[in-house]
Amino acid sequence: MKIIVIGKSGQLAWELSQLASPEHEIVCLGRIDIDLQHVAAITECLQQQKAAGVINASAYTAVDKAESDVDNAYALNAKAVGNLAQACKALSVPFVHISTDFVFHGHKGAPYLPGDEIQPLGVYGASKAQGEQLITDTYPERSCIIRTSWVYSTHGNNFVKTMLNLMRTKPELGVISDQIGTPTYAKGLAAACVASLTSSVNGIHHYTDTGVASWYDFAVAIQRIGLELGLLEKIIPIKPITTDQYPTAAKRPHYSVLDKSGFANTLPELTFCHWQTQLHMMMTALKAEQP
């Protein structure tokens, strides 16, 4: 099966590229390879590539910048997604799209189900929500939307690498403790994407690692594992702070844990691991990559 991944430089696209095998040829296309703003161009490109399935791992993910860069956020997170859905429908190939916990308001106080009402707080979440709706309106019969959260990888820029760099250079850190979610290693998310495509899963689903954490909890675990693996040389104080103490352009959901039970039932072959287990695995891989 030849799988076309939309996206080339991002961490999920990179993890997807690592899953290439004799069973699954995986080709990643960047912005210079495919014009996402025109359906005809997408359709022609997918035909030329002889795509048997498409995974959209591209997105406008600069949450704060999106508040002032509205047109570009919607162009990539909504219009391009709708165009991809139209092209996949024209070619009758399955389509998997990655969405986000930011489509939710964050005040439910319990894990969000795929069918819960969406109430995005900012441009990023609203643009991703519109992308979801365009898929649902256009190609519900052979499309799968996977919402996820707090994604990181050995590749690219992410919270884990940022924290490690700050822990090496700063005397102390303050990290937000009142935003609750679940970190997700992109390696597992990539496997879930491929499984959804090859098993022809439809509808909206949730995938993250298991467990619950604040950004503060996440940072504390990064420091603990970093010291254990020798990625860090010294302990620095990490202080919990509130969202109000660290104002940002975009509002973020206070509680955005996603309920994965339906997806686990749909794809019983998937393995769901605790976020701290996955974090240890990623940081071990990160250490192995260092000279």
Rank of each mutant, 00 (worst) to 15 (best):
G106H: 05
E228S: 12
G7A: 07
L227N: 10
A110V: 13
G131M: 08
T100D: 04
K79S: 09
P114E: 00
S92A: 15
P253D: 06
H105T: 04
A13C: 09
D137V: 02
L232A: 11
K89V: 14
Q278F: 00
I42L: 10
R147H: 04
H97G: 04
I238M: 10
K2A: 05
G106L: 09
A191F: 00
N158S: 09
S92P: 00
L286C: 02
P253V: 08
E44Y: 02
T243L: 06
F104L: 11
L267M: 08
A52C: 12
I241N: 07
Y112E: 02
E117F: 10
R31N: 13
E269K: 11
A110K: 13
Q179I: 15
H274L: 10
Q133P: 00
F263Q: 08
I225R: 01
W215N: 10
S153N: 07
A250F: 03
N56Q: 03
Y139S: 06
L12M: 05
H274W: 03
Q18C: 10
N202S: 15
V103Y: 11
H205V: 07
Q223H: 05
N202D: 11
H280R: 15
K251G: 13
A20L: 00
D71C: 01
V175Q: 08
K65E: 14
T154M: 09
H24A: 01
Q18I: 01
G262Y: 07
S127R: 08
H107A: 13
A264V: 01
S196T: 09
E67D: 04
K89E: 14
K287M: 04
L267S: 08
A110F: 08
S149F: 10
F95S: 02
H24Q: 09
